[in-house]
Nucleic acid binder design. Structure first.
Lengths: 122, 122
DNA sequence: ATTATCGCTATACAAAAGTATAGTAGTATA
DNA sequence: TATACTACTATACTTTTGTATAGCGATAAT
């Protein structure tokens, strides 16, 4: 996380190691069993804790709490506490996280083509 | 891996669950500590086992072997055995795997912008 | 008084992923 | 005869990741 790690697209593409590191940055932000469902749940609207929990049936509060903290630390999610009774806490994607949508689109597209390509070979 | 899982891009984008499933397909193919380095190592040329090992200094043969099998099973890598002495085994990316390059480009691009965006907020 | 809701945390455990280290079979070179 | 190369496999272990289950403190409704 040091400044020296700041590299440009060109530099990263030219050097395989920098390339892998930079792509890994993205990968880390969405890896794990629950990050994608959580991001998916927040893609179109803000939500509260219990709200997300209901939206992702099998997640435990422990995991949801942990992953939300993780996402917050990585600049993916903004957490806002409202002093109501009972307390309400709202989670929403940051602007940067919303841009991830484009990447996910590409992943979706490739995933579908790859499935067709590999099934075709059987 | 059943036919019923075959869905279109439009269907997948419309339905959050299908969306997450299809993106996960892509994610699974590149997740784990060593898949990206291995794919990176094979992006521009075919390589042999020991060759890849030298290219990725800290990988153990156990991990390399396991991940290569995994990648082969997922239609990412083609393995060819040559009956020389000693035996040579060549690994190369499939056509479908090479297309993943575009996705990785997007991930690289987003990773760099995200890093700048989150550093800017400190 | 009991139950429910909100947003979690604590503890203990199981499963998955990765590491360390050694060794294999076959051939070939010093 | 000893060592090295190729392409791995075997065994045992540690670390990371995820699960299961229970409970907390504040408030409010029944």
């Amino acid at each position: 996380m040091e400044i020296e790690n700041l590299i440009s697209f060109k530099e990263a593409k030219a050097c395989p190691i920098q390339f892998v590191l930079a792509v890994n940055d993205t990968l880390n932000v969405i890896s794990g069993k629950w990050k994608l469902p959580i991001i998916g749940s927040l893609l179109f609207e803000k939500r509260r804790f219990t709200d997300i929990q209901r939206n992702i049936p099998k997640i435990t509060p422990r995991m949801l709490s942990k992953e939300l903290k993780d996402l917050e630390m990585n600049g993916m999610v903004k957490r806002t506490v409202y002093d109501t009774t009972p307390i309400t806490v709202e989670y929403e994607l940051t602007e940067s996280a919303k841009l991830l949508g484009d990447v996910l689109d590409k992943m979706l597209e490739w995933g579908l083509q790859h499935r067709e390509a590999t099934i075709a070979k059987n």
